[in-house]
Amino acid sequence: MSKRVVSIIVFPGSNCDRDLEIAVRNHMNVKTEYIWHNETNLKNKEMIFIPGGFSFGDYLRSGALATKSPAIKEVIRLSKKGVPIIGICNGFQILTECNLLEGSLIDNYNQLFICKECFLRVENSESMFSSNLNKSVVKFPIAHAQGNFYTSKDDLKRLEDNNQVIFRYSSEKGRVSKISNPNGSLNNIAGIINKEKNVLGLMPHPERAVDSLNDRDGIKFFNGLKNFI
């Protein structure tokens, strides 16, 4: 096993921290360390995950209260130094709330929580987060009530022009259309990176697709991250 250590930030309401820890440990071949939200100093600065869940009950706006945590202030500081940061589901919401990523994740178009398997077209395989996925279609489940990606027209154009969109909801064959859009996200966006390309946020859960009994596309995702830590 590599001596590298991946940090996973834990809030009182995180509920995908355990699932993520197992996926990272098994499929990135690294050690992991949980960071409690009020810690002010991250010992290991190699790669940071912000897991899914309901950080502080998701009251006010999903992820909003979490941005006031000392650990997130540290994440913001480290992001400026180029440390790779990945936010999944609630983690993505937190990253947009603290402006490390553009846009907002608003209520799903049908105002309901949605849990289902989704196909995602990998849009940009040059990013370190997706280089192992080529330009394929992967299947990860979603489970959220606020995953509807929204941003201004200009920002959306910039995101697209800069190749910052990494994942888009699609059909099994990779067709991107309204039918394959589960939550109303603009341009079917499921995951984006920042301009500097070291911060990734995505709504679907790759850590829930690493089981030999179910879908295994998540394994490719985590395997691919090995080279960048």
């Binding site: 995908c16 699932d19 849990c115 289902k116 489970a143 850590e207 829930r208 690493v210 089981d211």
Partner: peptide
């Protein structure tokens, strides 16, 4: 059932 998170805890 789509309103229920069925896959958390893996």
């Amino acid at each position: 059932y789509n309103q229920y998170d069925r896959s958390v805890m893996c």
